[in-house]
Computed example of a mutant assay.
Amino acid sequence: MGMKLPDVTFRTRVRDDSIDGPNPFTWKDMTTQDYFGGRRVILFSLPGAFTPTCSTYQLPGFENLAGEFAEQGVQDIYCLSVNDAFVMNKWAADQGIKTVNVIPDGSAEFTRKIGMLVQKDNLGFGLRSWRYAAVVDDGKIVAWFEEPGIEDNCADDPYGESSPENILKHLKANNPFAVAS
């Protein structure tokens, strides 16, 4: 633990009220430091937007437990996937996400540098992230939750270690940053 997150620039799309029309967004580069510097956050990554486990359990689970994570001193929650900014923003909107922030890793640079890039050609996905989560303090990993059995073209999709419930349980048991209720 204590590993520093890789330095990456993410290509994001953000709303720009000066733009008219059905797509009022503009490009904005965001860095690892922009997202993770100077605060306590949760980062979780998953194989893909709009996929069953990610859309049914993981993303909505983090969204639903955001208040409890805040009580544990978590300032932001980030969902990262090897998808582009358009897909990530549409998925967050379709899911009604208000608290969790999505990070597009369209070229898989962050995922590769953190060692979680796997092939999912068996599902027609190509290169994707293995499912994991981390508690990050000022850009350094202080707790790591990785699904077992990382391998290319894995026949199943393990889920449990990186679940919001598991991370919340860990924080409640090991957290010097908890906010008194």
Score class of each variant (00 low, 15 high):
M1G: 11
G2E: 12
M3Q: 12
M3P: 10
M3D: 15
K4M: 12
D7S: 15
V8H: 04
V14D: 11
R15S: 10
R15D: 03
R15K: 13
D16G: 04
D17L: 03
I19Q: 12
D20W: 12
D20E: 15
G21H: 05
G21D: 11
N23F: 06
N23G: 05
F25N: 08
W27Q: 15
D29W: 14
D29H: 10
M30I: 14
M30A: 12
T31S: 07
T32A: 04
T32N: 09
Q33F: 15
D34W: 07
D34I: 01
F36V: 08
G37Q: 06
G38M: 01
R39P: 07
R39S: 15
R39C: 05
V41G: 05
F44K: 00
F44Y: 02
S45T: 06
L46W: 13
P47A: 01
P47E: 01
G48A: 03
T53P: 02
C54K: 01
C54H: 00
Q58H: 07
P60N: 11
G61C: 13
G61V: 05
N64Y: 13
A66F: 15
A66C: 13
G67S: 06
G67W: 10
F69L: 09
E71T: 11
E71C: 15
Q72K: 05
Q72A: 13
G73E: 08
Q75M: 12
D76S: 14
I77S: 08
Y78S: 06
C79G: 05
V82R: 05
V82S: 04
V82C: 11
N83Q: 00
A85G: 07
A85I: 09
A85N: 08
F86P: 08
V87E: 01
M88W: 09
M88A: 13
N89W: 07
N89A: 05
K90R: 09
K90G: 03
W91H: 12
W91T: 00
Q95M: 14
I97F: 09
T99R: 11
V100L: 09
N101Y: 14
N101V: 15
V102Y: 10
V102N: 06
I103Q: 01
I103S: 09
I103C: 09
I103M: 11
P104V: 00
P104T: 06
S107A: 07
A108T: 07
E109S: 14
G115I: 06
G115K: 04
L117R: 06
V118I: 13
V118C: 10
K120L: 08
K120Q: 10
D121K: 04
D121F: 03
N122W: 03
N122K: 00
F125S: 06
F125Q: 01
G126P: 00
L127Y: 09
L127Q: 15
L127V: 01
R128D: 11
W130A: 13
W130H: 07
R131N: 05
A133D: 09
A134R: 02
V136L: 04
D137G: 00
D137H: 01
K140N: 14
A143Y: 00
F145V: 06
E146K: 00
E146P: 02
P148F: 06
G149Y: 08
I150N: 01
I150A: 01
E151Q: 06
E151T: 00
C154E: 06
A155I: 15
D157G: 15
Y159W: 14
E161G: 08
S162D: 04
S163H: 05
E165W: 12
N166T: 12
K169C: 13
L171D: 04
N175R: 05
F177W: 13
V179D: 03
